[in-house]
Design a binder for these strands. Structure first.
Lengths: 188, 188
DNA sequence: TTTAAATTTAGACATGTGTAAAAATACGTT
DNA sequence: AACGTATTTTTACACATGTCTAAATTTAAA
């Protein structure tokens, strides 16, 4: 991301960011990610390409920004202390909510893009990293031969695997059922 | 892959396939995957770009072909019946051997490419699919609430996670230790 | 309101991607 | 060795990507 999201941004910048991400969302609902060109995004959003490159490194960079909005827009309850044994449930719940509130977009994505296209792995990786970040902080007191990082990534893999099954591969399950799947896969 | 690998190929085709994959290997040892262009591959292998497109869809397609060679060249013992409880060990062992015999290339890859670059996920996905294929066939008689496909993918994820840790993130472990990690992650 | 600073824009450039059709070449078969 | 087929090469084209610069415009602050 070329644009600095931490500093407070001007109205113009807000408008521009919004225009580009809206255009991306619109195109994602219409066609496969690979078939979307930056030229097209610019045409729809009525900004010149130079402006696009003022804000984003490339198409993937914009996509990542879209996932950020995606997460922020689903006003997930803020994190509050969770008992360690509820940790996986908490993380799964948070991402489940975010995806649940964007079911339509995800359905369209699944429709236009093959299952292992770069866009599916893009969303997968984005939320996996979210999960890893939370899990790593709270698994510190575990005693296991396997390194903490591996455990955190493994839990995250498992959670995202089930969420992909539900929201991308379109097997509707409740949050509770999702949790049961995760528990069983983790041998609990 | 545009070229049909199943039919027996002419000497010329063999030579061409070899030239392209050699060029790719050479470049992979030198620079990051994203910085490798098809033009460059063609310059090194002394073939025109159109010939490249006779054989491969795109750069990723050639890369996938490289993993195929990678696997074939490590003369892994042929599959023979394995007891179900040894299945994970068998699959892990096979891929461990293949990666072990290409340690140098993997080290170079890790050096030039960020951890989640498309090339790392490319090799990850390739072997993950190998693992899934074997596991799916042999997990048929499991009785679990979680669907077979999910279980197979979960096991494969876990195996590849540990192998990535060892060969890409460069934490040397023996095959036995790797197996212990996998068992612990799977809650065995 | 004015002005200095920051941002945005237009356009050009070099490079890369992928397709298509015709021409040249190599190859196995006889 | 010559033939006919299949492959490879040449050539040309259309479009995408990413960078750069100078000019225009917008913004924030005086």
């Amino acid at each position: 991301m070329k644009y600095d999201l931490t500093k407070k941004s001007t109205k113009g910048a807000q408008r521009t960011l919004r225009a580009f991400s809206d255009a991306m969302y619109k195109l994602l609902a219409e066609k496969s990610y690979d078939d979307i060109s930056i030229n097209e995004i610019c045409k729809i959003s009525n900004f010149p390409r130079a402006t696009f490159y003022n804000y984003f490194e490339d198409k993937k960079d914009l996509l990542n920004y879209c996932w950020l909005l995606f997460k922020e827009e689903s006003n997930i309850e803020q994190y509050h202390d969770v008992a360690d044994e509820d940790l996986q449930e908490y993380v799964l719940g948070q991402i489940f909510e975010a995806m649940d509130q964007h079911r339509e977009l995800l359905t369209q994505l699944a429709k236009h893009n093959a299952n292992n296209s770069s866009i599916v792995s893009s969303i997968y990786e984005y939320f996996k990293n979210e999960a890893i970040t939370i899990l790593k902080q709270h698994l510190k007191n575990q005693t296991s031969k396997v390194p903490l990082e591996l455990v955190a990534e493994h839990y995250s893999n498992t959670i995202l695997l089930v969420l992909k099954w539900i929201f991308i591969e379109n097997h509707p399950l409740s949050k509770r059922e999702a949790m049961e799947y995760v528990d069983e896969l983790l041998g609990k």
